[in-house]
């Protein structure tokens, strides 16, 4: 296990591994499951020490941080300014920003608040050739150069090791409330979800696993007071509303995570070519995505 504290250390580790064709297993906080395909590597590179918020101007609604920063640390820093980085991925907040972006893990609010690839403005990374690259930037709109940021987002550490992320933030909703609807019908709730009130989430829950008695629907509303009140009035048409604390979503994120996308990786000729360009020695997380050469 190596835990680089500086990007230069990481570059040295990757360069040495690439020259010996020695596989590396890349982890953030080390909390991510094996995604079905264990990585065979003697050396684990832990990115947890590449941490901390390096740049945050609340008025810009952008933030830069080390890949090893945890989601909880990110949440604490932005909450103070009434903002958040609404990744809120499946899993818990002890995971790192880097792992969330590397796996492009979204969560129950992705449809409304943005998927990881919509929230990453730019990044820094060390690719499989030990090149330190810095595509994108810290501004919210940017089409300069080919989009390596998008390519690396969701590439599961098989093309490059993420070291720094530039993220888009959003203001937290002025009013944020969640409701449990025991007797809701799928058709009416789906219509509500697609309608003008734009709920943050409409989520089907199964059973008492969340301390809620039986099957039902969880709905989260957010916006200015008038918007939420009119959304709530419309939601009453979907069933009987029982208030629930916002924390219920932390449990939803832990329990209702979908199966890993890494299991069904399409190894097309283009995908092989991408891998060959960015990790020609095949040292970054080999096997994780079930690739066959």
């Amino acid at each position: 296990m190596v835990t680089p504290t500086r990007i230069d250390d990481l570059i040295d580790v990757v360069r040495a591994a690439a020259s010996d064709a020695r596989p590396l297993r890349i982890v953030g906080a080390g909390r991510w499951p094996e995604a079905g395909h264990p990585v065979q590597a003697e050396t684990t590179v832990q990115c947890r020490a590449l941490r901390g918020i390096s740049h945050y101007t609340p008025g810009d609604l952008t933030l830069s941080c080390g890949a090893g920063t945890t989601l909880a640390e990110l949440d604490d820093a932005t909450r103070a300014h009434g903002q958040w980085c609404p990744l809120l991925p499946w899993g818990d907040d002890a995971g790192t920003v880097g792992a969330t972006i590397a796996t492009a893990t979204s969560g129950p609010f992705a449809e409304r608040l943005g998927r990881p690839r919509q929230l990453v403005l730019g990044l820094e990374a060390v690719d499989g050739r030990a090149q330190h690259i810095a595509p994108g930037g810290r501004v919210v709109k940017n089409v300069a150069g080919f989009d390596l940021t998008r390519l690396l987002t969701g590439s599961w550490g098989t093309l490059a090791v993420l070291t720094t992320l530039h993220l888009r933030l959003r203001a937290r909703p002025a009013v944020d409330e969640s409701w449990w609807i025991r007797d809701g019908e799928a058709a009416t709730l789906q219509t509500f979800a697609r309608g003008p009130h734009l709920p943050l989430a409409v989520h089907r829950t199964a059973g008492g696993s969340k301390g809620l008695d039986g099957d039902g629907w969880l709905v989260r509303l957010g916006g200015n007071r008038a918007a939420v009140e009119s959304a709530r009035a419309a939601l009453r048409g979907c069933g009987t509303l029982e208030p629930v604390a916002t924390e219920v979503w932390d449990r939803v994120r832990l329990i209702d995570a979908p199966p890993s996308r890494a299991l069904t990786w399409p190894w097309t000729p283009l995908a092989h070519r991408v891998r060959a360009q960015f990790d020609p020695a095949g040292i970054l997380n080999p096997g994780l995505l079930g690739e066959v050469a």
Partner: peptide, 30 residues
């Protein structure tokens, strides 16, 4: 701390600014 294009693209017109915006390693990766 900005960028040379938000929506029009680099094309030919902005090629000359790319070296100021990105490192050689980043441009090579592109």
């Amino acid at each position: 701390g900005g960028s040379i294009t938000g929506e029009h693209g680099v094309g030919i017109d902005k090629l000359a600014y790319m070296d100021a915006l990105f490192t050689p390693a980043t441009l090579d990766a592109m």
